[in-house]
Design a protein around this nucleic acid. Structure first.
Lengths: 124, 124
DNA sequence: TTAATTTTGATAATTGATTATCATTAATAG
DNA sequence: CTATTAATGATAATCAATTATCAAAATTAA
């Protein structure tokens, strides 16, 4: 059978996601992880992200109208902010969903995503 | 200068979106509007959707991980439900965002989107 | 009607994101 | 250390969504 090997690039990719403190796009992962492995390629980033998602070490974050971002899988339930200028995604602590939800009959909610949009401190 | 002409296909597309009661994808618009204009083509749907968005008669609805849907622009503020099985989007009346939002300093919210995911009555 | 011009429909082209390919490099068991 | 084989990096290929092309059809002002 095949074995998982610990490579410099995987460690750099994992570290970039851990350190970021916000969800990263594959391109952002590439840029940040190149601080550790300058010759890192985009294909390796995608392969590693998929492996990390499979291993449940990170999770995919889908935001409206945006491509997939990735964040550590062990974060507590929270939501996101997307800056309309720089397109960076940020974590917003806690859940801002009302508790008294009334749904039409027959609808069953499994999960929810709240996305705030606007300007971040850098782009203000 | 150029003039906007009133064509059967544009009327059918507009009518489909009005009648649906939920946000429609371009493919769904095509299928539904073909009840009126059987020979309708997908390119015409895209062209008409863009024209209707420009004219602020409809608006684009972006949902996490989904392609763009369209709904009438005059609807009151509300949110959406996406069925994970059939991928149909539905309107959920009212806003389920908590009022007491505390944002980190420097963040300014311009808009927000809440997306509930789960199963719809048909797919339950 | 007619003439002018927009719109349509079929389909090719484009786009951005992601995945596959493959020769080379590197991790690791023994 | 060395042989084995997974991983890498550059790039081509793919995919779904959307836009461009263009000849034919339809709208509209006169």
């Amino acid at each position: 059978m095949s074995t998982q090997r610990k490579t410099r690039q995987r460690r750099a990719i994992w570290k970039a996601i851990q350190a970021a403190g916000r969800p990263l796009s594959p391109q952002e992962v590439l840029t940040l992880a190149r601080a550790e492995v300058p010759q890192l390629g985009l294909a390796t980033v995608y392969r590693s992200l998929n492996a990390l998602v499979d291993g449940e070490e990170i999770r995919a974050v889908e935001l409206p109208g945006e491509s997939t971002r990735y964040e550590p899988a062990d974060l507590a339930h929270h939501h996101h902010f997307i800056c309309t200028r720089c397109k960076k995604a940020f974590d917003m602590e806690g859940c801002m969903l009302k508790h008294e939800l009334t749904l039409p009959p027959g609808f069953k909610v499994i999960s929810h995503e709240i996305t705030l949009s606007g300007t971040c401190p850098d782009c203000d």
